[in-house]
Nucleic acid binder design. Structure first.
Lengths: 170, 170
DNA sequence: TTGGAAAGTCAACAAGGCTGACATAAAACG
DNA sequence: CGTTTTATGTCAGCCTTGTTGACTTTCCAA
């Protein structure tokens, strides 16, 4: 439990007590609840869950992505994803097109109806992020992103970064 | 979709494009996976889940807390918590003592065995947080915490802050 | 003392993870 | 061409962890 601001052992480059770390852990816990609260309300009204949200988000992010691709990003089994995808396709939110070059693949797209829901969900989530960013200020935002990136597993981080490349300006 | 760094409408105090906000959202998504990955491995080996982790964490944080108290912090129904609590009590990780003043209440404590698991879980999680904090640097950590706090719902934020008061130095 | 409120427990159901087994179609390989 | 591998989908069944409803015990106040 080193409490000192003075670097004690060469292991302590930052002022990091167990208590501070625990507060960081709890902050992530509570913040994540806030992060999902708004979309959850919208989804519940339509009879969907977070699993549907995640699928819709990443299909919108990378239109034409294959099922296998989505599987890797979401980190779930195909059986689990398929259940969600099936309902989205049946409900006319997602379209699944057979690949032209490789006919085994299914390329996934949002329909206009799917885009509507995606917009509703991401508007709600962005509004909260925007408010948080504004309240904290630009310097805090940069730090926020740095720590989040450092918290990811290496594999997740490279997935995240490759999405950034495809997605637009930094 | 204002892209300019120049403040356009008085609403834009920061340089916040939809794309930047979306990257923030995805960063939270991927980082949360990393955040839970280490404890999840430990829990799985013992046959527990995240719900057990959360209960253990907050019982350790506030020993003697009542079931109702824990309910408010965790934001689940008492029936849901009860199932988790029952297995933890049966397995000898948590002790439930009937309240002396109000016999309806159950006060919850970790047993030595429960403290062992708590330590294993929080060591793993703190190690990741520490690494992320070190990689990002002190200024980033401050910003990280600011944004997380701003992301919480007001009710969650006050719960979070009251835990901080009880817990030690900031 | 009686009725309501509060704390906790039991039962049953749903979402969404998981594994395993299997089917089909297409591609890749030899 | 025949075989194997890959991509996808499906069925069945299990687990965790949320939910609601019904119930008991306890406390308190009228």
């Amino acid at each position: 439990m080193d409490k000192g601001g003075a670097p004690g052992g060469g292991e302590t480059l930052l002022f990091l007590t167990d208590e501070q770390l625990r507060q960081g852990i709890e902050a992530v816990f509570f913040a994540y609840r806030g992060f999902t609260a708004d979309p959850d309300r919208i989804l519940e009204a339509k009879g969907y869950g977070r699993a549907h949200h995640r699928a819709i988000h990443f299909i919108n992010r990378a239109p034409g992505t294959t099922v296998n691709n989505l599987l890797a990003i979401l980190g779930v089994t195909k059986q689990s994803l398929n259940r969600v995808l099936r309902t989205l396709i049946e409900d006319g939110l997602v379209e699944s097109r057979i690949g032209r070059v490789d006919k085994r693949e299914r390329h996934l797209f949002l329909t206009p109806k799917g885009e509507d829901l995606e917009r509703a969900l991401s508007d709600a989530q962005r509004a909260r992020m925007r408010a948080a960013y504004r309240a904290a200020g630009p310097a805090a935002v940069a730090g926020f992103r740095q720590v989040l990136e450092a918290m990811m597993d290496p594999e997740q981080r490279s997935q995240y970064l490759s999405l950034r490349e495809g997605g637009g300006n930094g």
